[in-house]
Design a protein around this nucleic acid. Structure first.
Ligand SMILES: [Mn+2]
Ligand SMILES: [Mn+2]
Ligand SMILES: [Zn+2]
Ligand SMILES: [Zn+2]
Lengths: 145, 145
DNA sequence: CAGTTATTTTGAATGATTCAAAAAAGCGCT
DNA sequence: AGCGCTTTTTTGAATCATTCAAAATAACTG
């Protein structure tokens, strides 16, 4: 299916900013609105940041993209949708990586006691150190020892 | 241990705003800085919102309180610390409830593949409808059927 | 192509959090 | 109790991501 068709299927008009945004978000990654805007502006100068915000809001609504929120960071957007995967954020450098849903059977959707809530979704964010930052920390502690 | 002693143990000076904040956060709940400020101001008029922000930042740093972030909401603070429990947020009314760590053996800390990250923490936020909102939704769908 | 409606542009507003400088208060010591 | 040093609070302003609003423009329908 072409990008235009995807937009139409979602009930959205086919516009240049939207096509450019789809293109930018095609490759894997977790970009902020500002970052998407920078990249869109490369191929489509004159596009406003506000337009990118509008596009991303519409896409999120239509579930063409997924919006993820990490502490202390602006919202980020990715094209990997529909699989409720999770994320790790490096507390050293801020790098983000995808994590497939834990140990098979989605244990994260079956808490022991949900206090009467009907659960629809689980958002899981891991925190840790990426390989590079962990290595750096190792060298650090070795040097000071 | 008294609140004063807790502050001293954390290396923090004992001040009125800090004691008042500890008092406010004694009971379970998830309050925003603004809400803490409102309650502190009741017993300690003249306290500034900025002071509350300072206190909460110091407390979070010292792990006297835990800060949790929910999408679309200002940060919230709670006194239940040290057990890495999780949360549900009602998508209807915004109510927040605690959820003990899922099915015993903390499966949320053992993802199938962490892409080389060394994990230190898992933040799990469930989304759903609280009992009241679920009941309301039921009535709604019944009426329109 | 004209009419209708969605989208983009431009410019400003909002709200939570942070920054900075001066005043006040807490603590250790005498 | 009083001094001096350091932390905390106050006051006032700044920052940043996101949102709001109105007018201009562009996409779809027939
Ligand atoms: Mn992802
Ligand atoms: Mn809690
Ligand atoms: Zn890193
Ligand atoms: Zn509810």
């Amino acid at each position: 299916m072409t990008d235009s068709e995807r937009l139409q299927q979602a009930g959205l008009r086919v516009t240049a900013p939207r096509l450019a945004t789809l293109e930018v978000l095609r490759e894997p990654g977790h970009l902020t609105a500002e970052e998407v805007y920078q990249r869109v502006a490369e191929t489509l100068p004159g596009t406003s940041l506000q337009a990118v915000y509008n596009v991303l809001a519409a896409f999120t609504e239509a579930e063409l993209v997924r919006r993820v929120e990490f502490p202390g960071s602006p919202w980020r957007y990715e094209s990997r949708v529909g699989d409720n995967h999770h994320h790790v954020v490096c507390s050293g450098c801020g790098a983000v990586a995808d994590i497939d849903c834990v140990v098979g059977h989605a244990p994260c959707l079956t808490p022991s006691d949900a206090s009467g809530f009907v659960l629809t979704r689980a958002e899981v964010t891991f925190e840790g150190l990426c390989a590079a930052c962990a290595a750096a920390a190792d060298r650090e502690s070795l040097a000071s020892a």
